Simulated assay, not measured.
Amino acid sequence: MGAILATVTLKVLYHDKVDIGVTVTQYLSSTSDLEALVWEFIITSILMFTICGAATDHRGSKDLTGVAMGIAV
């Protein structure tokens, strides 16, 4: 949500002055908006499950928490 709000804010502030296309994530033209949203949801879910599982589970090794999060990213 923060990234979306920041991009919209830039668009409103610099409406015709600057091309802010480089700040917007662009995907292939064959990808629909819904498909991109679904993939973003899946990837973010995997990252959050990894963070929650590695950082808060008492059975896991706290020494490898950073490695697990790095691999997920």
Rank of each mutant, 00 (worst) to 15 (best):
M1A: 08
A3C: 10
A3K: 11
A3G: 14
I4N: 06
L5Y: 13
L5R: 14
A6I: 08
A6S: 14
T7L: 14
T7A: 14
V8L: 15
T9D: 08
L10T: 10
K11R: 13
K11H: 03
V12L: 08
H15M: 12
H15A: 13
H15C: 11
V18P: 01
V18M: 14
V18S: 11
V18D: 10
V18E: 15
I20P: 04
T25E: 14
Q26G: 05
Q26K: 15
S29T: 02
S30R: 03
T31V: 11
S32V: 01
D33F: 06
D33Y: 05
D33I: 05
L34D: 04
L34K: 09
E35V: 03
E35K: 07
E35D: 14
L37K: 03
L37G: 03
L37P: 00
V38P: 00
V38R: 04
E40T: 12
I43V: 12
I43T: 11
I43A: 09
S45I: 01
S45R: 05
I46N: 02
L47A: 09
L47Q: 12
L47M: 07
T50H: 00
T50C: 07
C52P: 00
C52D: 06
G53I: 02
A55C: 10
A55I: 09
T56W: 12
T56A: 13
D57Y: 10
R59I: 02
R59N: 08
R59D: 05
R59V: 05
R59S: 07
G60Y: 09
S61I: 00
D63R: 13
L64M: 05
L64A: 04
V67P: 00
V67S: 02
A68K: 08
A68P: 00
G70S: 04
A72V: 06
V73A: 05
